[in-house]
Computed example of a mutant assay.
Amino acid sequence: MTLTFNSDIYSQLLSQYQPRIIKTEDENEKFLEPVEELLSRSHLTSEEDALLELLVKLIEDFEEKHYQLNVSTPRSRLKHLMEARSLEQSNLVKILGSSKIVTKIINGELEITKEQAQALGKFLHVDTSLFLLE
């Protein structure tokens, strides 16, 4: 099955949410709401996935600039997405290979590989780069 991307639908989503550079905490909170709503869905359209990716990037950029003490890591992003979607470690076993690997990644004993990041991105409908060190 080939997923198609409808520019008109994406334009409607952009018009509805009006994403832009986040400059205040209130704006950040405003954009967190649709992100959490999108993350709670089990299936996203290509257009919703693109919007989610954009909103997450805008939020990350704001938080990176304003919350230096709480720097996001691939592991913390994974844990956040798991929490937002009510996923358990057992839900990631098929994605990452084994329960031992999942536990080591969650505990910070192993870094997420490029292949694992791709699998997680596909499974969670987010950009692979969220799980890779920059």
Rank of each mutant, 00 (worst) to 15 (best):
I106A: 03
N6G: 01
T128N: 08
L55D: 04
R85Q: 13
F62T: 14
H125P: 02
K57S: 13
S98W: 06
L51T: 04
L124Q: 02
I21W: 04
V56L: 06
H66Q: 14
Q116W: 03
T45K: 02
K57T: 10
H80M: 13
Y67M: 07
L120Y: 07
K122Q: 10
E25D: 09
R41D: 03
E88A: 15
S46I: 07
E63P: 05
L14K: 06
E37M: 11
G121M: 08
L92F: 12
E29A: 10
L14G: 09
R41T: 01
T24R: 11
E36C: 10
R75F: 08
T103N: 14
G97E: 13
K65F: 08
Q12Y: 01
I21V: 13
E83H: 11
L52V: 02
L69H: 10
L120P: 10
P19E: 00
Q16C: 00
F31E: 01
Q89N: 14
S72P: 14
E33P: 14
D8F: 02
R77L: 10
L87Q: 02
L110T: 07
I95V: 15
S11Q: 00
E83L: 05
L14S: 01
L81Q: 05
L55M: 13
T24M: 07
E60M: 14
L133S: 08
Q68K: 12
S99D: 15
A117Y: 01
L38D: 01
S15G: 10
T4Q: 06
V35M: 00
Q16P: 05
H80V: 07
S129T: 10
E109D: 13
S40D: 09
E53H: 08
G121C: 03
S76I: 09
K30C: 08
N6R: 03
E36T: 13
Y67P: 00
F31V: 01
N107P: 01
K79M: 11
S7E: 09
S72R: 12
S72A: 11
S42D: 04
L14P: 08
E48W: 06
L58F: 00
T2D: 05
S7G: 00
Q16R: 11
E47D: 02
S46L: 05
S86F: 12
L78M: 07
T128R: 12
N70W: 10
A50M: 06
G121T: 12
E60G: 15
K94L: 09
T2M: 01
L39N: 07
I101R: 13
S46N: 05
V35S: 00
H43I: 12
S86Q: 11
S40N: 12
L54I: 00
S76K: 15
L130D: 00
L92K: 12
H43C: 08
L13Y: 01
E33N: 09
L32K: 14
N28K: 09
Y67H: 15
E64T: 15
L52A: 02
E111M: 07
Q118G: 12
Q116V: 01
L130V: 03
K65L: 11
L92D: 04
N91H: 15
E27F: 03
I9E: 11
E111S: 15
S76Y: 12
I95Y: 06
T2S: 03
E33R: 06
F5P: 06
H125C: 08
T2C: 03
E37L: 06
S98Y: 09
T103Q: 13
I105K: 05
T73C: 04
E27C: 08
Q18A: 10
E109T: 12
E64Q: 14
P34N: 00
H80R: 15
K23F: 05
